[in-house]
């Protein structure tokens, strides 16, 4: 199986005034193509820091990170931007959609930074991404005209539109109720079934059980890794949650 993400002895320090915070203190991990990995751990254990480094938003203080065969330590800021544009998709806890901008335009955004994609193709791809998250009837809605779950699905469509090698989600269900959370997880599972690699951070054990593998962080190191045995099928879970719950 192809190694998509390879992290070797990775450390990350933050310097806050005189104090040095060791956010990551030697992490080794591998994510293979097609995996659906959930990163778990207590607050402050370094989950977001890890995901930001995987997402090429931040660089490690020490250690090696290889994404899809590319070692990122030697890359410039602009190269990293290009890499994020071509290979990565982000889903955030707070959606981060552009306000007063409709769903379609929001989804098109990553392609605007890809000079090889022409206008017509851009619109086509944005439409089909919105279709794949089940929002083809909400294309011209602005974020404030959409529910939280719908907004997050627009964000997922945006993360899909550039056909990334991996989708990274940090607490993507953190702002959503249980039912909507499972809707989002069902969408992720569907994408994963189609072959998309997904790495997501959560602190909810049940949500983590939707993944194929769990990595648990503690104080900047991996405490434990395990394959998910009793995996939850989010769609079945949804069926068992009554609509009026939450």
């Amino acid at each position: 199986m192809k190694k998509l993400i390879e992290i070797i002895k990775l450390k990350k320090d933050y310097y806050v005034g005189e104090v040095t915070v060791h956010a990551l203190r030697g992490v080794d991990m591998v994510v293979n193509e097609g995996e659906f990995v959930a990163i778990m751990g207590a607050s402050g254990s370094g989950k977001s820091t890890m995901l930001n480094i995987i997402g090429c938003l931040d660089k490690p203080t020490e250690g090696e990170y290889i994404l899809d065969g590319i070692s990122i330590s030697s890359l410039s800021k602009n190269d990293l931007s290009g890499l994020r544009n071509q290979k990565l998709g982000f889903v955030f806890q707070t959606y981060n959609l552009l306000p007063r901008t409709n769903a379609l335009d929001n989804v098109e955004l990553p392609l605007l930074y890809n000079k090889t994609v022409k206008t017509k193709e851009r619109i086509e791809r944005a439409k089909s991404a919105l279709e794949s998250v089940g929002l083809s009837d909400r294309m011209h809605h602005k974020p404030n005209q959409l529910s939280g779950g719908q907004q997050q699905r627009v964000a997922i469509a945006r993360s899909l539109v550039n056909d990334p090698v991996v989708i990274l989600a940090d607490e993507a269900t953190g702002n959503l109720d249980t039912r909507t959370s499972y809707e989002i997880m069902a969408l992720f599972q569907e994408l994963n079934n189609k072959g998309k690699t997904i790495v997501f951070v959560t602190h909810e054990p049940d949500i983590a059980r939707c993944a194929t593998r769990n990595i648990i962080f503690k104080d900047g190191v991996i405490l434990r890794e395990s394959e998910v045995k009793d995996r939850i099928n989010a769609l079945e879970m949804l069926a068992s949650i009554p609509l009026e719950a939450d």
């Binding site: 938003l57 602009n78 931007s81 290009g82 982000f90 981060n96 552009l98 955004l109 930074y113 550039n162």
Partner: peptide, 16 residues
């Protein structure tokens, strides 16, 4: 600022 962060995250370069 957050919009700028987002644009950068999805591939916007400093120049963009």
């Amino acid at each position: 600022t957050r919009e700028i962060g987002l644009r950068m995250a999805i591939g916007g370069k400093g120049f963009d």
